[in-house]
């Protein structure tokens, strides 16, 4: 019953989108490609400005805002909130899921031991330090371990 309550508005919306999608006005709304036309080398801070100059088509933002500077990587949550589909042109969902998932089997820094240059959230033995870091900024932990990926935590946090 509840499922239907939730699904009905969705189906209605899907229908609406179907109609909109077939309407002529929509054809003029620009889209970005499904995947980035150029494969980029890994292991570097991608500077979009290196290859792109001006603003993206339509109402998109300046390319350079998405250059993967140190602060972009650290603060990517702000960018993903409004431009997730742009991320998806270069990143498979699995790229994000290695750090963000309901149940992660391995710490990303262990899984990708061959990539010490990447910005993984916990390195080394985090069990000791988390008792400090968790008190300092619990909101940041909540983003990943709050409603997901807490299999291991509940063994101690009873």
């Amino acid at each position: 019953m509840r499922t239907w309550k939730l699904l009905l508005p969705l189906l209605a919306l899907a229908g609406l989108i179907g109609i909109i999608a077939s309407c002529a006005q929509m054809k003029t709304v620009p889209g970005i490609p499904a995947s980035h036309p150029e494969t980029l080398a890994i292991g570097q801070q991608v500077s979009c400005a290196e290859c792109h100059e001006d603003q993206q088509k339509g109402t998109m933002k300046a390319f350079n805002a998405f250059s993967h500077t140190r602060s972009f990587v650290k603060n990517h949550r702000f960018y993903a909130a409004s431009d997730d589909r742009l991320c998806a042109t270069c990143h498979k969902s699995s790229f994000c899921a290695d750090c963000h998932t309901n149940k992660a089997e391995m710490k990303p820094s262990t899984r990708y031991g061959e990539r010490p240059d990447r910005e993984f959230q916990h390195r080394g033995n985090f069990i000791t330090l988390h008792k400090i870091e968790g008190k300092l900024d619990p909101a940041s932990c909540y983003r990943c371990h709050g409603r997901a990926n807490n299999d291991r935590c509940v063994a101690c946090h009873r």
Binding site: L10, A21, M26, T28, K103, D151
Partner: peptide, 24 residues
């Protein structure tokens, strides 16, 4: 299920719904 689209005049719309994915 999820749907999203840009609309004319700079608007955009997205919606999703379904079962939660339970954890431990």
């Amino acid at each position: 299920v999820s749907v999203r689209t840009d609309l004319p005049l700079g608007f955009g719309l997205s919606a999703f719904g379904g079962a939660t994915v339970h954890t431990a």
